[in-house]
Amino acid sequence: MKLGDIIEPLSLDVRTGSSSLGRAVTGVYVSDLLSDVMANSGEGNVWITLQTHLNIVAVAGLKNLTGIIVVSGRNVPADVLQKAEAEKVTVMTTQLSAFETAGKLYQMLYA
């Protein structure tokens, strides 16, 4: 499954890094603890979080994640979007909660 395939079913708003929509989604990781994501997420994973500060871009970049989904309609500050665009990190936002987002992705990946 490619990143682009999850945009419509999850009603995601692609905020940055739209050039990466062809990348494969290897799995999903849900966490708001950044050290946990550093330690346990896998390369190519989509990361579901409600964190919106600058460090999410560095974590996603270092772990080579396919994208970040910021849930519950949380606002992502402009400087974060700017950094994400510069570093080619795909940031997507959704009104759905983390639970709903993860549930839908689970269905798409494994059901």
Binding site: L33, Q51, N55
Partner: peptide, 14 residues
């Protein structure tokens, strides 16, 4: 911010 969970030094060691 999602830091300070007491995972930093253990992650470094691991």
């Amino acid at each position: 911010m999602g830091w300070g969970a007491g995972m930093g030094l253990p992650n470094m060691k691991k």
